[in-house]
Simulated assay, not measured.
Amino acid sequence: MIVIRHARQNETGLLAAIGLRAWAKAIAGLADAAAMRVAAERAFVDFLAKHWLSVLLIEEENRICGWAAREDLDSTISDLWIDPGAQGRGLGKALLAEMEQRMAAEGFDVANARTHAQNVSAVAFFQGAGYRVKWLSTAYSQKLDRDMEFIGLSKQLASEPMSERI
């Protein structure tokens, strides 16, 4: 059974480990993950310590398999990480759909996401979910400890008819 719920503060270490494993897989072949591991781990730990209230996690059979966050509780999905051993089973799609549903319920019309431009699997994942590329820019990545090209994607969210909101 799949469950999506808010993260708890005492789960941040486990979530950081999942994020780190997924991050290492995402940058394989693009950068030296071993050399950047300490900075990436610190970035995950720091992020989750500050923003755990903005994190939704997904469990399968009572095992946490991934998480997503809206760092500023706005319309931007700042993180979406699925443990590599749990990828390919629809967990990312389910977590993304839940994030979108919550954003729409909060009144947001558009969902936004960003990833590094060479993360082909993440770009394909978001495009497969109906996101379109909106921008490309270079910015400093704390997790990679260097400047990276980032790609921004967005998707129009389905909205309920006004009569159903009242």
Rank of each mutant, 00 (worst) to 15 (best):
V110K: 08
S54Y: 04
W81D: 09
R102G: 02
G130A: 02
M162W: 13
A139D: 11
S159L: 14
S121C: 07
I64C: 13
A16K: 04
A31N: 09
A24E: 15
R21N: 09
L30E: 09
D46N: 10
I151V: 14
V45D: 10
P84V: 01
H6P: 10
T12V: 12
W52R: 05
R89L: 10
T76Q: 12
Y140T: 08
M36N: 13
R102Q: 11
I4K: 07
Q87Y: 06
L80S: 02
S137K: 15
E164M: 12
V123T: 04
D83R: 04
A105Q: 12
Y140M: 01
K93A: 14
A16Q: 02
R8W: 09
S159E: 12
G85Y: 12
E98F: 08
G90L: 01
V38R: 15
L14S: 11
F126A: 00
H51A: 08
P161C: 05
D74K: 02
D72R: 15
D109G: 13
A105N: 09
N10S: 11
V110G: 00
L53S: 14
E98P: 01
G130H: 03
L73Y: 14
L91Y: 13
R5F: 01
R146T: 10
Y140W: 09
I18N: 03
G66N: 06
E71V: 06
K93I: 09
E149C: 03
E100Q: 08
R42P: 06
R42L: 10
A31P: 01
V3I: 15
A117M: 03
L95S: 02
K155Y: 03
Q87R: 04
E106G: 05
F126N: 03
F108M: 02
R146Y: 05
H6D: 15
W23R: 05
A139Y: 13
A124G: 06
H51M: 01
V110P: 00
Q127R: 13
E11H: 02
G130D: 06
R165P: 03
A69F: 01
D79G: 09
E71T: 11
L14P: 05
V38I: 15
R165S: 07
S141M: 07
D79A: 14
A7Y: 08
A105Y: 03
I166S: 15
E160N: 08
K134W: 13
L80W: 01
F150M: 06
V55G: 00
I58Y: 04
V123Y: 00
K134M: 13
F47R: 09
R8Q: 12
A28S: 11
I58S: 00
I58H: 04
V38K: 15
S121T: 12
R63Q: 15
A17R: 11
W135S: 14
Q118G: 07
K143H: 14
